[in-house]
């Protein structure tokens, strides 16, 4: 299915397996994401796409196979894992901004505490990032005072502040009111254009069409299709994907 050589992959999953009790959520997953590539993962709920995304920075453990980032296999626990995670940005469905910290502190905490960046420098870079995602004027507020869309843009800025090699998005717009989805997607599209390597789990087909280099379709814990967006949306090969797409389009 994948056409390129795993050797030049920034994110590499080889034969990854995971169970939740009886449920086989990830079945022998092989996925390789090159530098600068935007891979959108779609599929029905329960297909394992979120688990896949979370496994890439080991928020979910795996039972078999390997996951490597930039050639380094994900360590089990401890210092090396923390270091590797610092290179992988993660954006969650429920934002998960630090509730007791201001917007600015949310963005500067990682650089200051994990990377040892000086506070003045971290503040400056954080403000630039907050401006870039359009929430610069919210810097002194607490997360609860912002709308969902604004919080999610701050969450993207927080991840970017670590200067990650790859960004993971786990259904970043699923918890948002419809009118706020676009403001988040616009930031993500901009990011994709700038060449960020991204793995995006989403239900936003518009985003997949517009920004994805590849669409990965998952069902029942397996990667069923892996194709260019226009190819996948106009001419899906598997019945599973045809069925999934027909349900989306009828509404």
């Amino acid at each position: 299915m994948t056409t390129h050589v795993p050797g030049d992959a920034l994110v590499s999953l080889n034969g990854v397996n995971k169970h939740y009790g009886q449920l086989h959520v990830l079945k022998d997953i092989n996925l390789h994401v090159r530098k600068g590539e935007v891979v959108v993962v779609i599929g029905p709920s329960g297909s394992g796409k979120s688990t896949l995304c979370r496994a890439i920075n080991r928020l979910e453990t795996i039972e078999g196979g390997t996951i490597s980032i930039d050639g380094k296999v994900l360590p089990e626990e401890g210092k090396e894992l923390a270091q590797l995670r610092a290179d992988v940005g993660m954006v969650f469905q429920s934002f998960n901004l630090f509730a007791h910290k201001t917007i600015l502190e949310n963005v500067t905490l990682g650089p200051i505490k994990v990377k040892g960046v000086a506070k003045a420098q971290a503040d400056k870079e954080a403000m630039a990032l907050l401006e870039r995602v359009g929430v610069g004027h919210q810097a002194p507020k607490l997360p609860a005072q912002l709308s969902g869309g604004q919080q999610q843009r701050v969450a993207i800025a927080r991840a970017l502040a670590m200067k990650p090699k790859v960004m993971l998005f786990d259904e970043p717009t699923s918890a948002l009111d419809p009118e706020m989805i676009n403001e988040v997607l616009d930031v993500m599209i901009q990011l994709a254009k700038e060449g960020m390597t991204m793995v995006v789990v989403t239900h936003e087909m518009g985003f997949a069409r517009k920004a994805a280099d590849r669409v990965v379709f998952m069902a029942d814990g397996q990667i069923v299709e892996d194709a260019k967006p226009e190819e996948f949306f106009t001419n899906p090969k598997s019945d599973r994907a045809k069925d999934f797409l027909s349900k989306l389009l009828t509404h």
């Binding site: 928020l59 923390a82 993660m90 969650f92 990377k115």
Partner: peptide
């Protein structure tokens, strides 16, 4: 999870 994901 958010804290761990920024490398803490």
């Amino acid at each position: 999870e958010a804290a761990r994901s920024i490398g803490m």
